[in-house]
């Protein structure tokens, strides 16, 4: 959690086909003191990368494939928040 029970943490999820997401790795967050919380809040700012390690099941066909997923996030600052959003994510993979 980002440091407050009601805030919505960023989350990347993937469909289970044709590969399986084995591990999603988030970068280390910054701890920022925002005026609405007595405790520091974990945040990302600027540009950052979220990594995913995929596992190919034995039945996976070699060749180019797409993995589709969703990224849910919420953006806030000291004064206001944008509504939470869920955006589609798609990556191209070469299964060998």
């Amino acid at each position: 959690m980002p440091g407050d029970d009601y805030l919505i943490p960023i989350k990347l999820t993937w469909n289970k086909d044709p590969l399986e997401a084995e591990q999603v790795t988030y970068p280390k967050a910054q701890q920022e003191k925002l005026s609405f919380s007595p405790n520091p809040i974990s945040v990302y700012t600027g540009s950052f990368e979220i990594g995913t390690r995929f596992k190919a099941p034995p039945t996976a066909m070699p060749g180019m494939a797409f993995m589709n997923g969703k990224l849910r996030y919420q953006a806030c600052n000291n004064k206001e928040c944008l509504p939470p959003r869920t955006v589609d994510v798609r990556v191209t993979l070469d299964i060998q």
Binding site: I10, L12, L19, Y44, T45, G46, S47, F48, E49, I50, G51, T52, R53, F54, A56, P57, P58, A60, M61, P62, M67, G69, L71, Y73, A75, C76, N77, K79, E80, L82, V89, V91, L93, D94, I95, Q96
Partner: peptide
């Protein structure tokens, strides 16, 4: 049995829209 390999690892780059608030 053949075990498929994935050619590379992937990252999703995210640019937060906070600056436009």
């Amino acid at each position: 049995m053949r075990v498929p390999k994935i050619a590379s690892t992937f990252t999703v780059s995210v640019l937060l829209a906070c600056a436009v608030l």
